[in-house]
Design a protein around this nucleic acid. Structure first.
Lengths: 146, 146
DNA sequence: AGGTAATAGTTGTATTTGTAACTAACAAGG
DNA sequence: CCTTGTTAGTTACAAATACAACTATTACCT
């Protein structure tokens, strides 16, 4: 309840993370938005399929920590645009396999290359060692559950 | 367009930042949500007023990089709950000064103390030096505009 | 086999957000 | 003063999100 000069809320980690994440997302968001009319969740699904190849919606949810309704809607829109195709599994007809189409792969490759450049710009001036440490600290924070 | 083994999208900074930010926000969000029925933007406005004292909506927008509609709505709800009061400026009747009420200050103090503990838990096991570097790297990323 | 529970994915509804248009008050140039 | 432009803050409407309820299919247990 008292004033606490040892803790500055401006340095509150969740707040800083949000600020940095929002700032960093914005520019790149414009790329996939303007170029391909995609939303963030769609780009996420796309790039998971680009990296891992065939996956189910649940697989993506587990990897990306995305809720299944987000995935469901993202998949729907990506399918409409013919960036991916859905295939029912014959041995378990609840599950649906997702694969990028040729066009989806092209879009992925393009965005991935843009992402590479943008990422480089973000860590410009930062020693590789520092950038790597930053990334692994973020991975650790993201892995925290509960 | 070709495969690029030197760049792993899983380590894409905007993505990692988002993952970490979302994970870190979640727990703390539950605190102010459950305890005071507040939304994230309301907590942000509250804590800016707690730190800086009297501010206008525009001041907060500039500091927090928050859009004015978000602030407008957050202020509205905070005023309804009597966490802050609005006062028109006499010399420029467009601007409105915002001050926390006694109750608002109590809520701020409580949340701030909870935030301190949660922040400590987040960097637990990390040397102080590393945590400080992380924070300043995030500040730098957040400051990037354009 | 038959009933209950679990899983994959979708849909409905209520909130929340983003964008743009709006009102009100002030400022500056003629 | 009077027009034009700017700034503070609000409101309206479209889009996105969260959460819960839903369908369909498979698994488990007796």
């Amino acid at each position: 309840m008292r004033d606490d000069p040892d803790f500055d809320v401006r340095m509150f980690l969740p707040y800083l993370l949000n600020q940095a994440a929002e700032a960093a997302s914005l520019e790149f968001q414009n790329v996939y938005k303007d170029r391909y009319g995609m939303l963030r969740n769609e780009w996420r699904v796309l790039f998971h399929l680009g990296i891992y190849g065939r996956m189910t919606a649940s697989d993506i949810g587990a990897r990306a920590q995305m809720h299944k309704t987000k995935i469901s809607r993202a998949v729907q829109r990506l399918a409409e645009r013919r960036y991916l195709v859905r295939t029912r599994d014959d041995s378990d007809r609840r599950v649906e396999h997702l694969d990028l189409t040729k066009m989806g792969q092209k879009v992925y490759a393009d965005l991935r290359s843009t992402a590479r450049d943008y990422d480089a710009a973000l860590v410009e001036g930062l020693p590789t060692e520092d950038a790597d440490r930053l990334r692994s600290q973020l991975v650790a924070l993201a892995a925290r559950r509960g």
